[in-house]
Design a protein around this nucleic acid. Structure first.
Length: 452
RNA sequence: GAGAUUGUAGCUCAGUUGGUUAGAGCGUCGGAUUGUGGUUCCGAAGGCCGCGGGUUCGAGACCCGUCUUUCUCCCCA
């Protein structure tokens, strides 16, 4: 018999982990609903025609593809086998596992466009799969928690996302964090004013590494990517704008005066800030960061990223505004803005900061001992009454040694044990033991339900 | 996709230049204690040394392949 193993890059979540993960999921779900988002679930499996071509060539490679059922090789010819594997794949696989929640969401919106109430606010908490090479904090199966609003350009949505981030993290006890916010239009504007219009893509790839490799190396990389010394000289304000937030909008306007789109980005950013302020958010933890560029390929407006302070960890949440979510499915012009929480990273942050509440592990409040057939029969009646009174209760299933039964209760963190033997059956007075203090007292059932 | 790295008991790890019967701590189980958990003491079980091939009189150790772990790059959550 060979030992079983997990598939590469996957994990089990035992009862202890599940209690903690559910605590995170429940908090996020509660806040999403409080902001008017409605739940959506889509299938794990999608047709490859839905998934392919949406994530770029690299993304297509990272898709888990499902071999056709039955004799998948039935219609293959020797010529097919001689083809490159990508062509062969299309002949033997028609379905794949979901790669993210956004594309299935877009498919859903297109398929239900006539029935949806627009603007449509949906949240979705489901696992996704990527055939990536696993690393620390990177798995082949992991959960995403997305909330998106589609069908409106209103900046109120951006402001609400900022508010939700604050509420979720504070709800989880993560007090010290920074919501970094930028706008794609500002990045476009910067490319214009430094004399490299349309080059914000390569510009951002380099600038994005500022934290990691420092200013000098960023400039080297910009040169490698074809930026002139003149471009780089014009770019200098970017290195001071983030550190010093005072008058940031005025300084941005000065720098981007020559770019209409850049100025629009600044106005949008400012308006989002104003709406957050109007809501009355206490002690906002927001930072304008003109070097923030995540997911540049599809964001068109606001860009968010959230970092927990005081721990060595990448971003725990991110999102932004995109145009044309559903364009790939033949429904152009639908704008949306969304946020995604990284549960695994939030879990690690909370673990490191010891933010999980105690006693998440068990839900059983009281356990009944099991002496023998008579005591079990008597105890079952008590058990029913305890459960009817609303308590999580269980009886030890075997007439094992008491030592073993107490050990079980101890290890399951059950706070109370009810001892039912011949004495208790005769008198009707039950022995209740408090497992934390070790104290034991003789009580009637109604006294016990009162005490619990 | 590229480079490096790891794999020995349930867990964390020892294991000498290749040489008898592969060890420790923790955990598990049993007993001390037949109506009372945590602590203590005593005892026991538990290993195809990741898997497949090769070199050798002899392989946990050396060689090749493969899977796996971790890390960097790429990319991302």
């Amino acid at each position: 018999m060979s030992k079983p193993t997990l598939a590469r890059g996957t994990r089990d979540f035992g009862p202890t982990q599940m209690a903690k993960r559910n605590y995170i999921f429940d908090t996020i779900r509660r806040i999403f609903q409080r902001y008017g988002f409605q739940p959506l679930e889509t299938p794990s499996i999608e047709n490859l025609s839905v998934l392919m071509g949406k994530y770029g060539d690299e993304g297509d490679q990272l898709l888990f593809k499902i071999l056709n059922s039955g004799n998948f090789a039935e219609n293959l010819t020797p010529t097919d086998l001689g083809e490159n594997y990508k062509k062969l794949t299309t002949k033997i696989s028609e379905k794949g596992l979901r790669y993210d929640l956004t594309v299935p969401f877009a498919r859903y919106v297109v398929m239900n466009r006539n029935d949806l109430v627009m603007p449509f606010k949906r949240y979705q908490i489901q696992p996704v799969w990527r055939a990536d090479r696993p690393q620390k904090g990177r798995y082949r199966e992991f959960y995403q928690c997305d909330a998106d609003v589609v069908g409106t350009d209103s900046l109120l949505c951006e402001a609400e996302i900022v508010l939700m981030i604050h509420e979720v993290l504070r709800g989880l006890g993560v007090a010290d964090f920074t919501v970094k916010i930028n706008n794609r239009k500002i990045l476009t504007g910067i490319a214009e004013v430094i004399g490299a219009p349309g080059q914000e893509g390569p510009m951002c790839v380099a600038i994005d590494k500022l934290d990691k490799i420092g200013k000098e190396k960023v400039e080297d990389e910009l040169r490698e990517r074809g930026f002139t010394d003149e471009n780089i000289a014009q770019l200098q304000p970017i290195f001071t704008l983030t550190d010093d937030q005072s008058d940031i909008f005025a300084r941005l306007r000065g720098w981007l005066a020559g770019s209409e789109i850049g100025l629009k980005g600044v106005s949008e950013l400012e308006e989002v800030g104003a709406k957050v302020a109007a809501f009355g958010l206490q002690n906002p933890q927001i930072q304008m960061d003109v070097t923030l560029a995540r997911g540049l390929s599809y964001y068109t407006g606001a860009i968010f990223e959230v970092k927990a302070n005081g721990v060595q960890m990448g971003s725990i949440s991110g999102g932004g505004r995109y145009d044309n979510l559903t364009g790939a499915f033949g429904m152009p012009g639908l704008s949306g803005v969304g946020i995604s929480f990284g549960v695994d990273r939030i879990y690690d942050v909370m673990e490191e900061l010891k933010l999980f509440p105690e006693n998440q592990t068990t839900s059983t409040r009281i356990m009944l001992t099991n002496f023998d057939a008579d005591a079990e029969r008597y105890g079952l009646g008590i058990l029913r009454q305890l459960r009817e009174a609303g308590f999580n209760a269980e009886m030890y299933p075997d007439a094992a040694k008491l030592k073993k039964q107490f050990d079980y209760a101890d290890r399951k963190n059950i706070p109370f044990v009810l001892i039912i033997g011949s004495d208790e059956i005769q008198t009707g007075i039950l022995s209740l033991k408090n497992m934390q203090t070790g104290e034991q007292q003789k009580l009637t059932l109604s006294e016990i339900t009162g005490l619990l």
